[in-house]
Each structure stands twice: as C-alpha cells, then as structure tokens.
Write a protein that binds this DNA or RNA. Sequence first.
RNA 1: GCCCGGGUGGCGGAACGGUAGACGCUUCGGACUUAAAAUCCGAUUUCCGCAAGGAAGUGCCGGUUCGAGUCCGGCCCUGGGCACCA
Length: 861
Amino acid sequence: MVTESKDYDFRGIERRWQSFWEKERPFKAGGSPSSPKYYVLDMFPYPSGAGLHIGHPEGYTATDIIARYKRARGFDVLHPMGWDAFGLPAEQHAVKTGTHPSTNTQNNIANFRRQIKALGFSYDWDREIDTTDPRYFRWTQWIFLQLFRRGLAYVDERPVWWCPEMRTVLANEEVVDGKSEVGGFAVERRNLRQWVLRITAYADRLLSGLDGLDWPDSTKRMQAAWIGRSEGAEILFGLERPSLGGLKVFTTRPDTLFGCTYMVLAPEHALVDELTTPGQRAAVGDYRRRAASKSDLERTDLAKEKAGVFTGSFAVNPANGVRIPIWVADYVLMGYGTGAIMAVPAHDERDHEFATRYSLPIVAVIEPEAASPDGVGAKLPYTGDGVLVHSDGYTGLGWREAKKRITDDLASKGCARHSVNYKLRDWLFSRQRYWGEPIPIVWVSAEDYARAAALLGPALPAEAVSYAVDGVARFALPLPEPALPLELPPVQSYLPSGTGESALANVTDWVDVWYDCTTGRAVPAAQPKPAGSAWMRARRETNTMPQWAGSCWYYLRFTDPRNEDAIASPEALSRWGTPDLYVGGAEHAVLHLLYARFWHKVLFDIGAVPTDEPFTKLFHQGIILGEDGEKMSKTRGNVVNPDAVIESHGTDSLRLYLMFLGPLETMKPWNLRGIEGVHRFLQKVWSDYVGEDGRAHPKIADGAKDPEELERLLHETIRKVGDDIESMRFNTAISQMMIFENALHKEPRVSRATALAFIQVLAPFAPHFAEELWSRLGAPGRAASAPWPRFDPKRLAAAQVRLVFQVNGKHRADLLVPVNLPQDEAVALAKANERVAPFLAGKTIAKVVYVPGRILNLVAS
RNA sequence: GCCCGGGUGGCGGAACGGUAGACGCUUCGGACUUAAAAUCCGAUUUCCGCAAGGAAGUGCCGGUUCGAGUCCGGCCCUGGGCACCA
C-alpha cells in the first residue's frame, strides 16, 4: 500500500487512497446501528454536459469535512449522492442528435461521478440514485397519485409561451425579450390544459412551519414573502342591477372604506361583460383584448402608467350608500383576492395614480395621529397609520380598531367577512416535454369514469378531475399502483408534437389504448378490445412532470434507495429520518425548498413519513467568482475547471483552498495564486513528517516530550478545529492548522502522539494526505477510522498571559503576567512600566478597569 | 419602490465590546546556488523619525462606553431577493 516516495506525490497518493476506498467501502452508512446517526446531504446536481463546476465541490467539500468529522466523533453517518437527471438540455440534445436522452444523461452522469470521485468525497456510493431510473420515478409517480387522490392535483387552462414558428411550447428560460432563445422567433401566450398542484392548501402550514427551522433568516424571509400572507376582509358592494348579486372585493384596509371612490375589476373578471353598458361596450371590449394579448411580464414587470376604462356601471358602498363608478384596469390581477378592488386613492399609491389620471375623486379618511392642529392633513396618498376622519360613526377611531369594527358591523349585515389571502399560487406541474416522469393518468369518458369509480372507489379523488375537449368531457383516472412505473415509450422524434403536446402524443399505440382500470394494463386501441368489464377506451396523459418533481423527495429515498415496496421502509425512515444538515445554493431558497416542504407535509399527512418538515437545518454556500471578480461564465472565459486544478495541485489542495478562500456562505473570487499557499502548507507538513528514506521523519520521536507551548497549541488546535467544523467556519480552522504547523516546523523534535493527533484534525480536510502520513508513521488502522483526538481543557490554560496596559483606552504596553494577577499588583506593574509611566505623569488615576488576563485600563486626568 | 446581506492593508480575509489586520497571497530583503527555480529566514496598513518611538487608521457624520471594526441614530456605495398581491 505505502510507497517509499520521499516527495509529496499527490497524484499517486490520491489515486491510491481513492482506489482503496472504492474497494473497501469504508463510508457505508449503517455500520454501527447502536451509534447515533448523522445524515448530511448536498443538493444533488443536474449532470450537465459541461461537467462539474468549481461551485459544486465547494459545498460538497464542506459536507464531506463534516461527514468525516462526525464519523470520527462516533456517529453513524449517512452521506449520499445522486443525480437530478431529468431536464431540458438532455432533451434538446436528443432532438438534435436523435439519440435517446437517457444515453446522453448516462454519459453525463458517468462523467460527473468520475469527477466527484476524483475529489475524494466519502459518499456511500451504494446508495446512489438517479431520478430518471424507473425504479426511482416509480415512487415519484406514486407520490403524484397520492396528491391526486387527495384532491391536490387538478387540471386547469394556464397560459404558456407558444412559438408558432417552432410549433412548440417554450419554458420561461427559453424565451428572451419576447423571442425564442433558439432561432429568435416570435412567441405568444396561449392557454393550454395543465396539471396544477394545490400547494395553496398548505400555505398556512408552509408559513408557520418556518418558525422552527434552523435556516438562514434571509431564506426564511424569502419563503414567507413568497407565500405572502395578508389579513383583511372580503366586502360585498351592492350593484344597481340586483340580479347580478354583488361585487366582492378583498382589502387589507377596511378602515378606509369611507374613502372608496371607485372600484376596479381585472379585465378577466366574470362580471365585466354584464356590467358594461352599451355605450362603453366598444371601449371595454377593446381594452380587454389588448390586455389579453399582453404577457404577464408586460402587465406586471414594466413600470408603466396605469390605464383603464369605465364600464358605465356603478356600485354602492355598503358603508354609506354612496354610488361609485366601476372601472376595468389591468393593474388589478385576476389571480389575487377576488380580482376586484375597492379603490381608495387617498390611501393607496396605485389608486392615487389612477384616480389622478382619470380625475376621480380623492377623499382622505385617515389622518396621521400627529396631524397638525390647523387641520391640514397629510400629503396624499398617505398609507401610514392614523385616526379615521369623514367616516360617520367611526370618525375618531384608531385604524386598527376601525378595521375590526367596520368589518364586524358589515359582517353582521351579511356583506363582509374577515379574510386571509396569500400571494402563493398553485404549482403548475406539467410540461409539454418528453424527458420527464410520465404523469400516471389516463383520460376516459364520463360513462367509463362512472364504471371505474365503482371498481376503484377510494383511489379516486372526492371530486373528479375533468376537462372538456370539443365539448366532450374527459375524466382523469389514476394508474393502479401495480402498474407503476409508467415508463417513457420509445419515440420516432423527441420534438414536441406540434399541437402543444409533448412528443408522446405522436406515439399512437401508447397514447390511445384499451385500458383495464383495475390493473392498468393497456393494449393499442387499434387492436380489438380485450374481454372483461374493467376494459375501456382511454387516452394517456401526454404531459410529463417538471424537473422539480424528482428533487422533491430524493432525501427520503437515500435512506432506503432500493426499496421496492415503499418510498422507504418505516425502519429506514426512523433510523435516518431527514437530513441533519442540508447544504446547497441560495438560488433554491424558494422553489425547490418550498415544493419539497409541500410534498413532505402531504407525505406526513398520509402517514408515509414521521415528521412534517424535511430540512430542519439548512446552509447555503456562497458562489465562487472568477479571478476577475465576475461571475464565472464560458463567454467571459473565467471558468475554473476542477479537473485541471486536481491535476496541477491535487484534490487535497483544492479542497483545502476551497475552504480557505473565506467564509463558506459568502461570495468570493477564485485566485490561482492562493492555492499555492495551501499547497505549500501541505508540502511543509510533508517535509516535517517524511524523512529522506520516505518513512517517518527522524524528528518525530516516540518518547519525545513536547515543550509546554507546543502541547498547549495542539490542544488549542484540536479544540478550535472541532468548534470551527461544528459551526462551519472552515477557513479559520485551516488558519489554526497552519499556525500549528508553523510551530511544529520550528521544533527539533516532536512526539509521535502529537504528530498523529495533528494528522487526525487535518484528515477531514485533506483525507488522502492524512491517510498517507498516517500509514507512513506506521499508525494502526486508518486515519479516517480513528476517533477524534480529545483536548484537555487544563492544557489550554497557560500559566502566563499577556496583559495589555492601556491609559485612557489607548494601548501603551503589554507584559507577560501570571494568570490570576490581583488588580493592585497589575496596577503597580503598570505604574512601574517605563512605557506606561510617561502617560501617567502628572495625572491622577480616576478609574481602573481590570479584566484579568486581558486588559488593564487606567483612566487618568 | 420595498425587504435582506456586505463595505477592514496592494489582494482573500481574522478579530467573546478589550493589543485592528491572525492565517494565506503579493512585494521587498537575506541565506543556499556558478546562476535561476524551489526551499529556508526576515520584513510588508499609512504618515513622521537614523532610531527609540509617536500619530492616524476598519465607507461617511454623530452618539453610547473606561474602551467601538463590533452597539445605537442618520447618510453614501455595493451585492442579492421581491416588485401593481389591493
């Protein structure tokens, strides 16, 4: 195993230990069932064709150090890796080359695996998973069916980007400036039938659950803002045509009801047609058409001027019976609240802008508490707190009180209720793509659905999912569990069908079938219908799932990756549970982390997992910039390739440098020179540990007694490196190790015990290097399996400490003194000190501040 | 516009309210060498001073404190997130 090479031959050393780990598998999880468990997880990568980016090993090195450290501390560690392998690039590659996307995907995975293994991470490779593996996505589909059964999956018409030229649906990121990214063709919005997941049903739990999580505050805030809970009231305004019922609005400011001078409907609001008077019909129709042709971006993103059109109708303010005009304007969104608002231009900036443009009345009903006595109100619009004015019986009330009273009073008349709204929208879950998990649903007629319902019972949602095509209703039937996984059929072409469906729509024999609703068996519809009462004509769902699906639950699968009967066994889930630490980029702060929390809560509700939050502790690594301080990108040519660094300096140097660069969570620039520093550090340790003969250096002696200072520094280093790993401050841990090495380097002799202990603390950072030195020194077993060295707090305390003397807060001198020097002696020493004395001359000491072992400050005047 | 981070030497960065600049890079000097590289030793915030030493200094202005990079108030710059959500 061990070579006699005198030099630090990092290439040979790293190759040797990696093949040893490959063979011996020392990092298998579950080896010590009686030990406490520790589950540390990286966000698994999308295996792109470009290979590993330097940002990947940054987070992975951090978790690997923690995994190795925890093993040394006696934990049974689960540290897995896998592939989030569905995704658009593989499909685009398939479209271009005509080869199946899985071929390309598997090639990319092989490359990623090779690169990751070259970094020496201590993953349990026996647990590797791949979201495109049918044995994996079988359970992704199973989870979808659980959502479906509970009424959390439904279909709806949703706008998507459609490119008429390419006859295909484009993802948001494929559309740049209103044109297709590829080809630069015009794109438009088009409504398509989509699967949608009812994540809004979990909005309150997703929000309140954040409280208990050990996550970066900024990430929690982002999720909270995304969920966007706001409390207010729904208020029903009367209409002049009673047959239309009323007009319901949502407002967070019922206290400003008396200031409402007009109303606004979103252009898509259902009542627009009926409220439009004949004289306004042309104008309203025109406005609605123009609004419809705008994208969401144009409607919301642009800081454009607010515009709208009057319907000709009026509503009645339920508070005071005042008649107010109803307008249509696209600054009101159909997707939020009721799609209609009461406009209070005096106290809302948007309404104020609109009212000003169209000369609508502006009535102030809130005055700041500190309003000037001369009766001049605040500058409008005034959106702050205050006291009500011009509000009949409510005048003089504070706004908080007024919100409640006005809502309650209207509620008692049946025209209001307290209400909560969320910004969070349901999750658009389907993609018109080939390379994704097929959605395990078939569509049948109303009659067949009724027949199936009798046979399937509880597998169906309480309310059937259906949609109409050419006036004929189609109903969604779930595949029975034994029919999973539903695999992707081979296709002639990976191009979308041209009709807004995926390539799957062209596989007639697969899409149009005779279908047995109890078994899920299917035969092409072109063949004769098989005998049996459960057989019916069906068309398969041609949408596939988005890339988020597979990553929503993969952390559960790692606990039991080969289970064929469940997502994971109850035993595995109770042993490993959820990750104790989850590390990944902040770019996933909202979507991935919110979607996964949603699925996890559903799985909790159906009893499939024992906890209701997936990631109790989360950490984001910062991104690494190029040497020019700019974001790494191919076009800038500042991309650092891990393979090249490993070749030139070795993995251990790369790992060390990635951690030494700065705090893990910050954004920091790469510096080619910097890696020389940590590489030199390893070289230095090497030359202190390995002698001319390639064996242990003669200065490392069995019986040697270390100087007290070196011993103290060793214990300080053991303590600090351990603490720093626990709190993920790897850069300062490495500094401390450098300080220790600098001291060790100066010693002519050092004890073997000290030498080995230092190797141990270095091992999680530079595992190949440490293993090599460990065996060169002839130590028993492996560095990776040796228990973490203990530090002795008694050894940390030096007998002498450096006490700083200050006069009026300014540093004047310092002196080595006994640790527990009494104050009067300290003062005496200071007065006698030649550096201090001049600053005290002719002054009296007014005050003495003494922090033993640290500082003595004499306040003199 | 709103909500969060962050501003410390030539550079990356360290500093329980207690010696600002640890550690590393860079640069400069020295040793080794025929020479260079590598390595080793030393110096490396700025200003004044031959030196001993002194003064200033953590984006800017002010405050609290015996003492502020750290706490408080107000600005400036910068990075990120959200953005007509009523």
